[in-house]
Design a protein around this nucleic acid. Structure first.
Length: 309
DNA sequence: AAACGATCCAACCGCTTCAAC
DNA sequence: AGTTGAAGCGGTTGGATCGTT
C-alpha cells in the first residue's frame, strides 16, 4: 500500500491537500528560513500564493499560523509575567474566550499562547478548587482573591527589584504607584498599579531569563507570605482577614476586596489605560516563575467556602 | 534506569467573517 | 444579492518534556 510519508495516510484516502503532497507537523529550520526570507522580501498576506511562491509544501493557513505565532519578529517568548496574568484575568472576565481580542492588549503575545496559558494554568486552579472555571465562585475568586494578590506580588516584586532597577512600588493613603527604569507610569484614572512601558524589549532579549528585563526573580507564592510590603506583611494581614462574605444580595467582599474598593480600584482604569497604550509593550518583566499561586491551605479554605455556599 | 502520568505548547481543524467581484 | 477565496478565530490534538515512582 502506498503511504504518504508526511501524513502517514494511505494514498487511497488522500485529501486534496495530500494530493498536493503538502507537509504537516512540526516546521523544519529550512521551512522557517524560507518563510522568513520570502516575507522579508515580499511581505505577508495572500498566504496560499505565498506558500506556493516560497516553495513551501504547506497550506497558506499553516504558513500564516507559523508566522504569526512563532516567526514574527515581535513575538515575545518566555513566561507570562505577573502583569500579563493580571491583564489576562481581567480581560477574560470581561470578554470570555475572545483570545485574539485579549491578545491585542498583550503586545508580543499570541492568542494561542494566551489560550494555552488559560487552559493550562487557570483551569488547573479551577480544578484544584473543584469548581467550574466558568462558575461565579471561581470568577469571584479570581476577581477578589487572585487578582489582588497578583497586584500585591507585582508591587512586592517591584520593590525587591531595587536597586537593581529603579523600580518602586508605594502605597499610601489608598494610592499605589509603580515605576520602573523611569518609564512612563500607567495612566489609570484610579489607583491601579502603575506599570511602565518596557521600551527595551526586543525578540533578542525576550528569553526566559528575567535578567534580560533587568528584573529580579519573583519568589514562589508559598514564600510570598513573608514578603514585606510597606514594612508590614501585607499578605499575612490579607490572609488573616481572608473570609469571603457572600451576602444575600450577592455582594461579595473580601479583605482585598478592600484593595479593590477602599483603594478605589476600578477596572475602568484598566480600560482607559489600554485604550491609550494598546500599541505599547507595558510589561516590565516580572516573570511569574511559578504558577503556584495557591498553597494547600488556600485551597482548603476556598473549598470550605464553596462548600458552605 | 525504566515506566508511567501529568503538563505544556505548537500545530491542526472546522467554522465564521470579510472583502472582492 | 450571490459566490468565492482569503483571513481570522476558538477548540482540539498529539508529541515532547518533565516529574514521580
Amino acid at each position: 500500500m502506498d503511504v504518504n510519508i508526511n501524513t502517514g495516510k494511505s494514498t487511497s484516502s488522500l485529501s486534496s491537500e495530500d494530493e498536493l503532497d503538502l507537509r504537516r507537523g512540526p516546521w523544519t529550520v529550512e521551512e522557517d528560513l524560507a518563510l522568513i526570507n520570502y516575507i522579508a522580501t515580499h511581505g505577508e498576506g495572500r498566504w496560499n500564493s505565498l506558500a506556493r511562491c516560497a516553495g513551501l509544501k504547506r497550506t497558506g493557513k499553516s504558513c500564516r499560523l507559523r508566522w504569526l505565532n512563532y516567526l514574527r519578529p515581535d513575538v515575545r517568548r518566555g513566561n507570562i509575567t505577573l502583569e500579563e496574568q493580571l491583564l489576562i484575568l481581567e480581560l477574560h472576565s470581561r470578554w470570555g474566550n475572545r483570545w485574539s481580542k485579549i491578545a491585542q492588549y498583550l503586545p508580543g503575545r499570541t492568542d494561542n499562547e494566551i489560550k494555552n496559558y488559560w487552559r493550562t494554568r487557570v483551569q488547573k486552579h479551577a480544578k484544584q478548587l473543584k469548581c467550574d472555571v466558568n462558575s461565579k465562585q471561581f470568577k469571584d475568586t479570581m476577581r477578589y482573591l487572585w487578582m489582588p494578590r497578583l497586584v500585591e506580588r507585582i508591587q512586592a516584586a517591584a520593590t525587591t527589584t531595587e536597586p537593581h532597577t529603579t523600580a518602586t512600588a508605594t502605597t499610601s493613603g489608598g494610592s499605589s504607584t509603580t515605576t520602573v527604569n523611569g518609564g512612563p507610569t500607567m495612566g489609570f484614572t484610579d489607583n491601579f498599579i502603575h506599570a511602565p512601558v518596557n521600551s527595551n524589549f526586543t525578540p533578542e532579549n525576550s528569553g526566559n531569563s528575567s535578567e534580560s528585563f533587568g528584573t529580579t526573580h519573583v519568589s514562589d507564592f508559598g514564600d510570598y507570605y513573608g514578603i514585606p510590603v510597606n514594612n508590614q506583611s501585607v499578605s499575612q494581614e490579607y490572609y488573616q482577614g481572608n473570609q469571603v462574605n457572600y451576602g444575600g444580595d450577592n455582594s461579595l467582599t473580601s479583605p482585598n476586596c478592600n484593595y479593590l474598593n477602599n483603594q478605589g480600584m476600578d477596572f475602568q482604569g484598566v480600560d482607559n489605560y489600554m485604550e491609550q497604550n494598546s500599541h505599547q509593550n507595558w510589561s516590565f518583566g516580572l516573570e511569574d516563575t511559578t504558577d503556584n499561586l495557591w498553597n494547600v491551605e488556600d485551597i482548603y479554605v476556598l473549598q470550605q467556602q464553596f462548600n458552605n455556599m
